[in-house]
Design a binder for these strands. Structure first.
Length: 868
RNA sequence: GCCCCCGUGGCGGAAUUGGUAGACGCGCCUGACUCAAAAUCAGGUUUCCUCACGGAAGUGUUGGUUCGAGUCCGACCGGGGGCACCA
């Protein structure tokens, strides 16, 4: 919405934010105020916001994220911590290649130009960053260490190649990891993924599945929600592996392994089902055209996740019989079925239709027996039936030989013990988590340091040959991976036998780049290793990490894995990279649609006489609900424009006001102008209130008038409250407190010396408190107050404890729980005094009408409740 | 379908964890300044009844626990997020 109140150039803004912000940014830079240097013995604090992808320009989400981080960084610095607050670039990725195809710019050029633009934008925000540690993941001095670590992991068995069905994104032309497929679609492109069978590099994240899950409990400074999402993703389930003998007339098929979480229902088994990708099915299909047709049919629906939900259970009866391991002579039919996944468990199940909904549906369709083996505790076994629906709750076991009468949990334990005794099964734990597929068929990423040799197989690139650098001379004239068709790059001698061989042309998933950048920040220029152990030991872990919740699983889980993989190869002894995590909400804006249905930018629209119209032709505009700012819906506001029009401090202040930081924030013009007006008002209050005040460092008066004490109390309480708010990420409450203090300082003229002294004290406190939020204005006012030091280097004010407690308190008086009046009492007045005073209140006397109350509840300093 | 979170004025949101609901801001209303507007300053602003004093109701709905419930418990309604043939 074009602003009716764009900052009126001529309307007496006495605070010139443009000059002032530039002035202080220059001063901080010249003094290297925010440069971090290890000082052993001094407490450190590592504040990190998720580093940006250099897409071209920063957006409001960045502004919000970095403002929050900067508040913490500046606050912790003032509290005396040695603060590390670095910034870098998540610089590899597909948009650079897309730009290369569309605009004929080389990805490297495009990326570095974007970095330059965005760096200037970030600098205009006045962030307290140590730019000397800046890094870009596309720089060979960065990724060489990544290649080295990968080789170490490979040697340690944490990296391997495997042929498997993988998710293929047909738009980006590359494979994706499981985590990167959301509802059957690529996380970046939104295109339905296809299944392809390929040999790809994987990292063995499953090796740490249990640890990654268990350690979540100790991450008590992480949002509960994120921990829960990771726990669900890892998906631990306890159960049993059970072996069924497979028999067919022609051949002995040996044992069939299945996984189940319900071994207690084994006596209710009525069929077996195998994945269409199960080796047994594959073998049978070779001579069975009908089975081949069935498999092909399943594959068709197998891709789109939305269809899976409604897809009917399909089975194909195989010419096999399974022998029940506990019931001699009992055989079960064996099916290939579309609902059994090869990737989970062993790709085979036993079907118990009585107690599993999927199995029930399948059994009904194919007319298989449905036998109840569990029933609710107090049900009648004669009438209890599972013919209509599976019973999946807890209960007692029936029809199950030695398990009869047991509760489910105990039955599970007993039957596992029995299966183990008989050698036909084993208690086991299964995870949903799969290994991390890291190959990408793309150019703009870190090359995988491997060489394929016809005689030696896959050979690691020798360490002396690192880094394997990307070639610059590539063409993007057609789809596919330019590395693959490069005339010379991939041809190389085998490091083992010397014969002609070829390089791996896949590059790493860019989530690898971001899995250790926080470690690299601890010694960003070291050439010989990813980081210096001592520096790393000092700065890590990240004390406060801040970013979007969209990385709850992807980036955060990968980073936790990478940290453990580094531990495994003795690079660190650390388990977890991020001690504290905060996930900020999105920045939203209303959406606007013209009469022809096209989206309009907020700046193309204005409010006129209660209606919203398009500025160009005054045609009506349909206002849609507020949604996350996105280019496609054009509901975006450019941070540059806001900073130019209103200043960085206004943008920062608005980002912190009103909305709790973890929730979505609605960007409104009214809110911005409100924030802007407050900056102006602060400047006015501070400079006007300054007149007649004692100078810096004036001696403290021996006594204070009531007005002076009231102001001092307000100021000191704000110090205590604000510190707590910032520590708890309650920035919106912190802002509210600052408004209150501004109101307390702003009114009236002090009448005596002690009040004038108190006003200076309050002003100084105020200016220090706004330092983390609006640093430029704060520096300017600090100077105006007569200080020669730099506020960014000043300590946080301390509250005098005596001023934090009041001598009198307001106590509410209730009659039967309803408020009837209030009392002013001395703090901690005895209960009987409070009771007597309350009972003497005219309202209470009138209501009691001479009778004695049934009961009087007194909560000291809070409430007196008279029950009549 | 399963798991989790959230429902408070016209709006964004507060409420020391069971103790005066609506802090603070936005918006709106009234007044001051101004020829006028903008900006600024002062006051008001949950709803209903009352000229007022004052009173009644009120935190999605509904029932409960309690001297006392936005806060705790049960059921339901609505919104958001995560996972999803995971055996």
């Amino acid at each position: 919405m074009s602003s009716a109140v764009s900052p009126p150039e001529g309307s007496s803004p006495r605070y010139n934010f443009r000059e002032t912000e530039a002035k202080w940014q220059k001063a901080w830079e010249e003094r290297q105020t925010f440069r971090a240097v290890m000082e052993k013995g001094r407490p450190k604090y590592y504040v990190l916001e998720m580093f940006p992808y250099p897409s071209g320009r920063i957006h409001m989400g960045h502004v919000r994220n970095y403002t929050q981080g900067d508040v913490i960084a500046r606050y912790k610095r003032a509290k005396g911590f040695n603060v590390l607050h670095p910034m870098g670039w998540d610089a590899f990725g597909l948009p650079a290649e897309n730009a290369a195809m569309e605009k004929k710019v080389h990805p490297k050029k495009w990326t570095y130009e974007n970095i330059a633009t965005m760096k200037a934008q970030l600098k205009s925000m006045g962030l307290s960053l140590d730019w000397s540690r800046e890094l870009a993941t596309c720089d060979p001095t960065y990724y060489r260490h990544q290649q080295k670590m990968f080789l170490d992991f490979w040697k340690a068995g944490l990296a391997y190649r495997k042929e498997a069905w993988v998710n293929w994104d047909p738009v980006d032309n590359t494979v994706l990891a499981n985590e990167q497929v959301i509802e059957g679609r690529g996380w970046r492109t939104g295109a339905p993924v296809e299944r392809r069978k390929l040999t790809q590099w994987n990292l063995k994240i499953t090796h740490f599945a249990d640890e990654l899950l268990e350690r979540l409990d100790t991450l008590d400074r992480w949002p509960e929600k994120v921990r829960l999402m990771q726990a669900n993703w890892i998906g631990k389930s306890r159960g049993a592996r059970v072996f069924f003998s497979l028999a067919s007339p022609e051949k002995d098929w040996g044992k069939l392994e299945i996984f189940t979480t319900r071994p207690d229902t084994l006596y209710g088994a009525s069929f077996m089902a195998l994945s269409i990708d199960h080796p047994v099915v594959t073998e049978l299909a070779q001579n069975d055209p009908n089975l081949q047709r069935f498999i092909a049919e399943c594959r068709k629906t197998g891709t789109a996740a939305a269809e899976l939900e409604t897809a009917e259970k399909q089975g194909y009866k195989l010419p096999l019989q399974a022998l029940h391991p506990l019931l001699p002579g009992k055989t079960l039919p064996v099916y290939a079925a579309n609902f059994v996944l090869m990737e989970y468990g062993s790709g085979a199940i036993f079907g118990c239709p009585g107690h599993d909904e999927r199995d029930h549906e399948f059994a009904v369709k194919y007319g298989l027996p449905i036998l109840p083996v569990v029933m609710p505790k107090d049900a009648d076994p004669k009438t209890f039936s599972v013919a209509d629906a599976a019973f999946t709750d807890d209960g007692v076991i029936i029809n199950s030989d030695f398990l009869n009468g047991l509760p489910v949990d105990e039955a599970k334990a007993r039957i596992i013990a029995r299966l183990e005794e008989m050698g036909v099964g084993k208690g086991t734990t299964q995870y949903r988590l799969r290994d991390w597929l890291v190959s990408r068929q793309r150019y703009w990423g870190c090359p995988i340091p491997a060489i394929h040799c016809e005689s030696c197989g896959v050979v690691p690139v020798p360490e002396k040959d690192l880094p394997v650098e990307l070639p610059d001379d590539v063409e993007f004239d057609r789809p596919g991976n330019p590395l693959d068709r490069h005339p010379t790059w991939k041809h190389v001698a085998c490091p083992r036998c010397g014969k002609p061989a070829r390089r791996e042309t896949d590059t790493f998933d860019t989530f690898i780049d971001s899995s250790w950048y926080f470690d690299r920040f601890t010694s960003p220029h070291l050439a010989t290793a990813p980081f210096d152990r001592e520096e790393n030991q000092y700065w890590m872990p990240v004390d406060q990490y801040i970013g979007g919740v969209e990385h709850a699983i992807l980036h955060l889980l990968y980073s936790r894995f990478w940290t453990r993989a580094m531990r495994e190869v003795q690079m660190t002894s650390r388990d977890e990279p991020f001690d504290g995590l905060f996930t900020q909400g999105m920045v939203c804006h209303e959406t606007y649609r013209a009469s022809d249905g096209s989206w309009l930018l907020p700046e193309e629209v204005e409010r006129a006489g209660g209606k919203v119209v398009r500025i160009s032709d005054k045609s009506p505009v349909e206002v849609g609900r507020s949604e996350k700012m996105s280019k496609s819906k054009k509901n975006v506001v450019d941070p540059d424009q806001i900073i130019h029009d209103y200043g960085a401090d206004t943008a920062r202040w608005f980002m912190l006001s009103d909305s709790p930081p973890e929730r979505d924030l609605e960007w409104t013009e009214a809110g911005v102008t409100g924030a802007w007006r407050f900056q102006q008002r602060l400047f006015r209050i501070a400079t006007e209130a300054l007149e007649g005040l004692p100078p810096v460092g004036a001696p403290r008066p021996a006594s204070f008038t009531d007005a002076a004490i009231a102001l001092r109390r307000a100021a000191h309480k704000t110090v205590a409250g604000l510190s707590a708010d910032i520590e708890a990420f309650h920035f919106n409450k912190a802002v509210a407190r600052l408004y209150e203090l501004a109101n307390a300082i702003g009114g009236g003229t002090p009448k005596d010396d002690s009040h004038r002294w108190a006003r200076r004290e309050a002003l100084e406190i105020f200016v220090r408190l706004i330092g983390p939020m609006t640093p430029h204005l704060a520096e300017e006012l600090w100077q105006a107050l007569g200080h020669k030091t730099m506020l960014a280097e000043e300590p946080w004010p301390t509250a005098e404890p005596a001023l934090l407690v009041d001598d009198t308190v307001t106590v509410a008086v209730q009659l039967n729980g309803k408020l009837r009046g209030t009392l002013q009492l001395a703090k901690d007045a005895p209960k009987d005094v409070a009771e007597a005073t309350a009972l003497a209140l005219p309202e209470i006397v009138r209501a009691l009408d001479g009778k004695t109350p049934k009961r009087v509840v007194v909560v000291p300093n809070r409430i007196v409740n008279v029950v009549a």
